[in-house]
Design a binder for these strands. Structure first.
Lengths: 356, 356
DNA sequence: CGGATGCACTAAACCGGTCTAGCTCTGGCA
DNA sequence: TGCCAGAGCTAGACCGGTTTAGTGCATCCG
């Protein structure tokens, strides 16, 4: 005989299928004595629910979906995703909810997967990442009627909830710090320009520069890859009046930039200060360790998962959420311009966070 | 009205449910004319199959499972997993097969998930990683009757298939290279000792050392973390007769070790050569770039996915597979001991692979 | 010309659960 | 004593597909 079904249990326990269903799902309709007996029989026969049969009746899929539209090869490079995944898993697995993951080529394919999984009842909700400037996806998910957590910026949506970090504040804190220790020419290696957070960071830098009266503050868009990060750094450092500080939108680019500086004989932080918008092992293990914005991506993943499970459960609109503004962790890749610090000296700017 | 069902299509097209099912699945039983009409109606009504209903009849789940038993927080750190995931996705998404991913605490929990997903018909097969010395998982999967691809070493199994890299050959090629350029004292920062591949690498180093008559060749087990990598490096470099070359089992540890060397004023590669057993952006972007074993983890992921889909389809035992032996990519972190090379000089050991 | 064959299609069972309508029995109360 | 409420349980419909047995009809063959 194959796997036991509730019919088998019913026969064994001498009751009807319905009674078994009631007992196994802890709902009224059977006496405590009968319930206990049914549970015992089910246990003995090692019964497990058949998720497909349950889903047919419209129950939960106990899974959520994450579709990422990027070339599969680049996913492995970006620590952000793996950390986000880690955080998601930490919460999801605690609730025995699985993650349906798929990597596709572009947004059109992504939407196609949304439709398919929705119609196939594969998932109870979605996580949307890489929010773009005019993004079609929230509307599609709204139409499909599936709850979703959208990562990347404020906005409206039916059964949706937004979670974002305050990129503007974060960028301002970086620029304020650099200006405070004397930098007047700052460059910014930005990410893909059609992402919303890239736009916000570029605008924040421009505004801060104007307010502080900086000599120069330029944003250079890239594709987030180490190759473009290195190339753009080389270009910037080759100019006659080169920037004294560069802010990188990702740690991978920052580390690549650090390598280029070394090659070109530009000392860090003596002649060039480097700040990464993303903190990870990467930023800590290179030499010198990088001053970086400590965004806890793992915690972000946890929060996203928690919020999604909430709106899936309640089927009511949850609360949009802004993650705490990340704090700048000052390490050894930044110093006042033109100063070669001694071994232990780090700029004493006490109002900024320092690692313990 | 909610989503259309085949009953709706049948009514609309004036045929029976059975005819619709035949038509939609491309099987004989309807004329070409009727089939075309049914397909047109289905298209018009935007019909999609309900996966749960299909699964009830015993069909495919069109998903495979990957359960990882490690602390969720560490997954994000290890480039290996994200690259493996990328490779898996590249193949799976081409076949419209989803990946069910779950991170759990330990092997016991992992086995529990196997049982649950198997009994719930959630997946068609599993991918098993981190094979251990006496690993209970292959036997469990065998008993569950689900096909699986086991990553990590040769072995037997019913509907299972093994894929592994030749760690022994790889380690030998590293040691041969180091010995050829004159190193006699080599240390090895190994990974977790209960993993099979760790054991194989340790044994290979010991054998090579004996064969080549090296003065010293020691393997130090670690937990793969950058912290332990750094600590162990510090210990090794503090010894009176320190090694002239260190082989790191992961790129994260190698980069951490590079940082420690810098801090302690030990020049790389002048006083210490560094080899990483794992290649990734990480190894390329630090300074100096690391000599590393180029294992194409992305390609490994692709192969695993391909093999799994094959045995799922055929339900017959596939062929075990050994991945091509990784080649050593010589970069600038290695040189003959005690030699400080000029800017462009790299040891001219032509029989080893050099990046283009 | 009669029977066998095969094609196109229908009706209904089936997968393994959930859920509702309804039945029986017991106890409480007027 | 008669009536009603409610607890405990059963029978069976139902979810949306797949699959099998069976039917009607045209065609082929001897």
């Amino acid at each position: 005989m194959g796997r036991p079904t509730i019919a088998d249990i019913a026969r064994q326990a001498g009751v009807s299928k319905g009674a078994v269903s009631f007992a196994l799902n802890g709902r009224p309709g059977v006496s405590e004595a009968t319930r206990a007996r049914i549970l015992r029989v089910a246990e003995e026969m090692n019964w497990r629910p058949h998720s497909a049969a349950r889903a047919l009746g419209g129950a939960r899929a106990d899974a959520v979906g994450l579709v990422i539209a990027r070339p599969a090869r680049t996913i492995g490079v970006e620590p952000f995703f793996s950390q986000l995944l880690s955080g998601l898993q930490a919460v999801l697995s605690a609730g025995s909810v699985a993650l349906h993951l798929m990597v596709v080529e572009d947004t059109a394919a992504e939407i196609e997967v949304y439709r398919r999984w929705a119609s196939e009842h594969r998932v109870d909700g979605f996580i949307v990442v890489d929010l773009q400037v005019r993004d079609p996806r929230p509307a599609v998910l709204d139409a499909l009627g599936l709850p979703a957590v959208v990562l990347g910026g404020p906005g409206k949506g039916g059964n949706q909830l937004r979670i974002w970090a305050d990129d503007r504040e974060a960028m301002l804190s970086i620029v304020d710090y650099l200006a405070a220790i004397g930098h007047r020419r700052i460059a910014h290696l930005a990410g893909l320009p059609h992402f919303q957070h890239t736009q916000r960071r570029i605008r924040a830098l421009r505004d801060a520069s104007r307010r502080l009266g900086l000599e120069e503050a330029v944003s250079v868009p890239t594709d987030f890859s180490d190759a473009e990060g290195a190339a753009a750094t080389r270009t910037l450092l080759s100019r006659p009046r080169r920037p004294t500080a560069i802010v990188y939108d990702s740690d991978v680019m920052a580390v690549a930039g650090l390598g280029v500086a070394g090659e070109m004989g530009v000392s860090v932080p003596g002649e060039l200060s480097i700040v990464s918008f993303d903190d990870s092992v990467l930023a800590r293990i290179v030499h010198p360790p990088l001053t970086a914005l400590s965004r806890d991506t793992f915690a972000l993943g946890e929060q996203v998962a928690r919020s999604l499970l909430e709106i899936v459960d309640e089927a009511g609109p949850g609360r949009d959420l802004q993650m705490p503004t990340p704090r700048l962790t000052v390490r050894e890749s930044t110093s006042p311009p033109g100063v070669v610090p001694s071994a232990s000296a780090v700029p004493p700017v006490s109002r900024f966070h320092r690692p313990g």
